[in-house]
Amino acid sequence: MDPQSRPPSLIVDPALPDSVSSVLRASPETLRAVRMGDIPSARGPDPVKVFSVAGSMGLIWIVTNFTVMLAMLILIGVFSGVQRLAADPGPRQERRRMRVAIDHANRFILPEDLDAECGALLRRAQDAAETVLESRVNRAALLDTIDNAVTLPDQTWQIATKLVRLSSLRAEYLRIVPNTPPPEVAEAFVPYSKALETARTSLIRRIEAMEEYAAQVRRADAVYHSYRQLELLAERTPQYEQLVADTTGDALAIPQLQELTGQARRIRELFLESMEDARRAAGYLMDSGGR
């Protein structure tokens, strides 16, 4: 599938505790049901069972005494408790997922909460964040300008919530103004359409800043493997130097030794340059997020 055509994935407010976010992420169908208002009403007691139990208690009261009836009530209570414990846990888990989704209905965003363009923009932001978080240089804790594990999910969530608002207001605008207004009144609608376009442009700039950061991290990642290889070889440089010195004359040894250290230095400089570019991109990302 073309990455550009992939829908965005479910996004949950990163500020939620893991105990809540894990429940939300594990039950997207429940989240959709809550979003659509398809919430089953709580089941009350079965009238037939209530009538049967009441009738039985009345009959016991008539033919025996209060002590026997009390003992029967205790037995019924114990039996009901055991029955609930032995019941299928599936419905209980579903009710819990439903309650969590209802209580946090504004803390998650589904793909269908966004129109097509805003969904594509969120996908771009998610892809950029994933590129950085899954990079080798990030896992090696070399991207120390910002805390990516905290900052990028927060940036993505902020972008997602604003894209939802943009989608909603844009849909409302198109419902109210489905066609091009007559020329003599068209100017009155311009501030509204301009506000939508300004918000769209601002969000695109933020996403492009994330993508630039991801591109610089990808470049640093490409050099990182070679850099690590050279770091390992650098520990053995004296052995290589001794080998060259012992097997060649001085006239050949000196240029080769210079080349040995020069190539390693160039790779290190390239890696350090790529890391600095990534850090600058991270700084620009933070600046654009604050606007």
Rank of each mutant, 00 (worst) to 15 (best):
D2A: 12
P3K: 03
P3L: 05
S9D: 04
V12Q: 03
A15N: 13
P17C: 11
P17M: 05
S19R: 14
V20Y: 03
V20A: 07
V23S: 04
R25T: 08
T30W: 02
M36R: 15
P40R: 11
G44I: 09
D46C: 06
V48H: 08
V48Q: 09
V50F: 09
M57Q: 13
L59E: 08
T64M: 01
T64D: 10
F66G: 09
L73V: 02
L75R: 10
I76W: 00
A86Q: 04
A87Y: 00
G90E: 15
P91S: 06
P91F: 07
R92M: 03
R92T: 04
R96E: 13
F108I: 00
I109L: 11
D113A: 01
L114V: 07
A120L: 11
D127Q: 05
T131Q: 14
V132D: 04
E134L: 05
S135C: 09
R136P: 04
R136K: 12
N138V: 00
N138G: 00
A141E: 11
A141N: 08
W157N: 09
Q158W: 05
Q158Y: 11
V164G: 05
V164Y: 08
L166K: 02
S167F: 07
L169F: 10
E172C: 11
E172K: 12
R175A: 06
P178N: 05
N179T: 14
T180L: 13
P181H: 02
P181D: 04
E184P: 00
V185G: 01
E187P: 02
A188V: 07
F189Q: 05
V190S: 10
V190P: 00
P191K: 09
P191Q: 12
S193R: 13
E197G: 09
A199P: 01
R200G: 04
L203Y: 01
L203T: 06
R206N: 12
A209G: 06
A214P: 04
Q216A: 12
R218Q: 12
S226G: 15
Y227R: 14
E231I: 06
L233V: 10
A234S: 15
P238M: 11
E259D: 15
L260S: 08
L270M: 02
S274I: 11
S274R: 00
S274C: 10
M275Q: 08
M275C: 02
R291L: 08
